[in-house]
């Protein structure tokens, strides 16, 4: 038995010894990737390197990310902005990013929250779950929020390397970065990326699959958003709610679109916030501005960002 345990120990020892350096190698290179997981690492890196000192922070999901250009806002309004849009994730994830942002950076004067149909929907999965891989080990904030990041187990936060198990393409990406094979331009600039894409079949496919869709609004998300608004008020951050254009046919597809808009209107009324609703804007009727029913393409997003800047001007003080 002693021989057995001695051999096991000798066999396992190199694995234990190599785990931490290997974890460091993968994590430090992976987070340098400027394109992996839709460029989310760029935003996280900026947050954790105390790099963001702006007047306007833009929150939301993919519709924030691809709709609102901080550069255009800056040019029009003369103040700095940063886009924190996090792809395909609802408000609980956006809130976590908000907390991390405020923890490591000076607070902004304004937060623009970009709404969409799914902001308050209950979400079981974690799209682009790889985006927290390089940051989560031994991190108390991530551990505290592990119910949000439900694809990871408790052990992933404490055992080096374990969370990279089976993450073939993240490991490959880290190696590519390390040997200088990643030569792509950054997926985001100040968190934003205009999408140069033609109209695709997403809406038709979704109609074929679902007919219409009713979005179930989750009380937990609503309560969290309410708490967020109160916290912002308490800390002197002015929140502006924006519902950017979506292609008019998507309003037919989401059959409780009005109910969703009402939720945003109610929040604006209760907390006395500015709500800019672009769901009836002329842009919504021109397919040339969109690449799918809920996302503007680069031309559309630049036009929208300019419109937004003009509409914001009366409410923004320098």
């Amino acid at each position: 038995m002693r021989k057995f345990f001695t051999k096991i120990l000798f066999f396992v020892l190199p694995i234990i010894l190599i785990a931490m350096p290997l974890d460091y190698f993968i994590s430090s290179n992976l987070k340098k990737s400027v394109v992996h997981v839709d460029g989310e690492f760029l935003v996280w890196n900026d947050i954790y390197s105390d790099n963001i000192d702006v007047d306007i922070a833009i929150y939301g999901s993919s519709r924030a990310w691809v709709h609102i250009s901080p550069v255009i806002l800056k040019d029009s309004l003369g103040i700095d902005a940063y886009n924190f849009g996090i792809d395909a994730l609802n408000f609980k994830f956006q809130y976590f990013r908000h907390q991390q942002y405020l923890k490591y950076n000076p607070k902004p004067n304004y937060i623009i929250v970009s709404g969409d149909s799914f902001s308050f929907e209950r979400e079981e999965g974690f799209y682009n779950y790889e985006q927290i891989l390089p940051y989560m080990l031994f991190d108390k904030d991530y551990l505290k929020n592990r119910k949000t990041f439900n694809v990871y187990s408790w052990f992933d936060y404490y055992v080096p390397l374990l969370r990279y198990f089976g993450q073939t393409w993240d490991i490959v990406r880290a190696i590519n970065v390390a040997v200088g094979l990643e030569n792509d331009p950054p997926a985001r600039i100040d968190g934003y990326m205009g999408m140069n894409r033609p109209w695709n079949d997403d809406l038709e496919n979704a109609k074929d699959e679902y007919g219409t869709l009713k979005v179930k609004i989750d009380d937990e998300q609503i309560a969290l958003f309410d708490r967020f608004l109160i916290e912002c008020e308490d800390s002197g951050i002015q929140v502006i709610l924006v519902y950017s254009p979506s292609y008019f046919e998507s309003r037919k597809f989401i059959n409780n679109h009005e109910e969703i808009i009402n939720v945003w209107e109610e929040f604006a009324a209760i907390h006395d916030l500015l709500f800019l609703d672009y769901t009836q804007d002329t842009m919504c009727y021109n397919r040339d501005y969109f690449y799918n029913s809920s996302h503007l393409n680069k031309t559309g997003s630049e036009l929208f960002s300019s419109k937004l800047a003009i509409d914001l001007k009366p409410f923004i003080s320098h």
């Binding site: 066999f11 198990f165 089976g166 490991i171």
Partner: peptide
């Protein structure tokens, strides 16, 4: 022997599919 076992462990680690 050990080299082969380490190789198998490395393959499991890197190429493990979704559970």
């Amino acid at each position: 022997n050990w080299g082969f076992f380490y190789l198998i462990i490395a393959l499991i680690f890197v190429f493990g599919g979704v559970q």
